[in-house]
Amino acid sequence: MRGLLEIKNLNVSFAVDDNHVHILNNVSMDINENEVLAVIGETGCGKSVTGSAILHLLPDNAIVTGNIFFKGQDITKMNDHEFRQLRGQEISSVPQSPSTSLNPLMHVGNQVAECVLEKNSSEADKKKTALKVHEIFSRLGLPRGEDFYENYPCELSGGMCQRVLIAMGVITHPELLIVDEPTKAVDWALRKDVMDVFCELKNDMKCAMLFITHDIAAAKYVADRVAVMYCGEVVEIGPTDSVINQPRHPYTKGLIASMPSKGFNVMNGFMPSFQDLPKGCRFSDRCECSSDICVNEEPESVEISAGHFTKCSIYKNMNVSEIFSHAITS
């Protein structure tokens, strides 16, 4: 297994009226081939900005530093023309809202086919593409055949639209698929179906995924590894089981404890706005085990167990056995 995508110290700020609003602060994460990394976080924590940064889709006032390596190439250094060769071909995305991301005046089949067709492709090419679209539709559990190909988006249910969008994302056989909030717009009963589609994709198509979501249960269902983001920082990253069953960062603990099935224990306070972040650790003002060091120093990332990193000062001066015993007691 080798690293497919590696994000190193990614910083993104937005220039707004002569001010810089610093959204992403030293975000680092990596995705291996055929691996699903879920990015969990709440509204406004910068998880979608991370996705957009990878896809070069940030607005013009964004200032990006740091590196994003895709197969060894730094995509932050590419210009739009060079990146267009990658986007859609090797890196592809499934956008957030299925109801508004499709062109309402175009057959869904054509919309999917459009992703691969060149401007002046021949009739033979078009036929071939149509077959390919049919194949992908049937693989995603959509009815195969002319009828479905010629539906308009308004004739389909939310879950079906979502699957059409997935088809658009995967038809080029990308190596990396960036999925933004796939469960947000779908109903409870459909959520599992949608997630099953992603699981199948992972197993059949062998494509790596960056799975951006606020739905912890969905992340757990599909992801190999999980990154938890808070206020533009990755506070915890590691294998799914380890992060969700033994969360080490106080924020992750709080987030998981506030799930209804865990008895919805409440975390104090609100997420601060990016204009007035607390000094030191960004979670320090809401954290129960906050101490002086948290307020004064920005915490460093500590490896708790194999591949499981957390950015919290509690673990700073502990050795392995102490960390282990701390985990048992808390």
Binding site: H22, I63, T65, N79, V234
Partner: peptide
Amino acid sequence: MMEKPVSVTEGLRYPRPK
């Protein structure tokens, strides 16, 4: 994983057509 922070003022935009 996480190294020393890079100052934002050294910031570099995505190369865009000028």
